[in-house]
Simulated scan of single mutants.
Amino acid sequence: MTGTRTTATARAVTAGAVMLAWIALLWLLEGIDMATGNALDTYGVSPREPAELADIVPSAFLHSGWEHVASNSVPLLVLGFIAALAGIRRFAAVVLVVIVTSGLGVWLTAPPHTVTLGASGVVFGLFGYLLVRGFVDRRPLDIVVGVIIAAVYGSLLWGVLPTDSGISWQGHLFGLIGGVAAAFFFRRPRRPQGPGYVTV
């Protein structure tokens, strides 16, 4: 029991440290962007330009102003912390899938002559991941977590609709899809049951 508690505490500390460092990085990058006349905004994704594929990852760490980064910080911190509790390596893999899926979706479908950046695709991806993870892994506790997250952040789903030309619903939608897909990609292996197997 003590070992289990120690492991859980260590994971919580690690998850918290990772997410606080991530949020701090987002604010630092926005500060640099502001100080350099929005020079970092050039690393946003412009659709259907081959060279812009290299900007898919960096675009997820950049924002278009203090209000933008502030609006993403709290949900990213909360959802990221919960997701990271299951292990940092799995969390990193999930985030990578979400970033690539969201970025490719934007690159393929965003209107021409636009630049898309921000962590909201990751927020939607983590939301989708946590929403279905418990059902995919068949873990009752994670199902309960998913239900609570749906109750608290369910209004996020409106963000996948094209209701505001200044908001990338494409990034939100494909981020959500990437998160759900990641839950299946990285599902926990089930323990074999049946004759010949003994649980101790």
Rank of each mutant, 00 (worst) to 15 (best):
T2C: 08
G3S: 09
G3E: 13
R11H: 10
R11I: 06
R11G: 05
T14Q: 14
T14A: 14
A15C: 00
A17D: 11
W22F: 13
L25K: 06
L26H: 09
W27V: 12
I32V: 15
A35H: 03
G37V: 05
L40W: 07
D41P: 06
T42W: 11
G44M: 02
P47C: 12
P47G: 11
E49S: 15
L53R: 08
A54L: 15
D55H: 15
S59F: 05
F61P: 00
H63C: 03
S64E: 08
G65Y: 09
V69S: 02
A70Y: 05
V74C: 12
V74L: 15
L77F: 10
V78C: 00
G87V: 02
G87R: 03
R89S: 10
R89A: 12
R89M: 12
R90Q: 14
F91G: 05
A92G: 07
A93H: 08
L96W: 12
L96C: 13
V97M: 04
I99N: 03
S102W: 04
L104M: 05
L104E: 00
V106C: 06
P112A: 15
P112D: 14
T116K: 06
L117W: 10
G118K: 09
V136L: 11
D137S: 08
G146P: 09
V147F: 11
V147Q: 11
I149Y: 02
A150E: 03
S155D: 12
L157K: 13
L157M: 14
G159M: 07
L161I: 06
S165W: 09
G166I: 07
I167K: 13
W169I: 04
W169Y: 14
G171Y: 06
G171I: 07
H172N: 15
F174V: 08
V180L: 11
V180G: 09
F186W: 02
R188P: 01
R190V: 13
G196H: 02
V200W: 12
V200M: 14
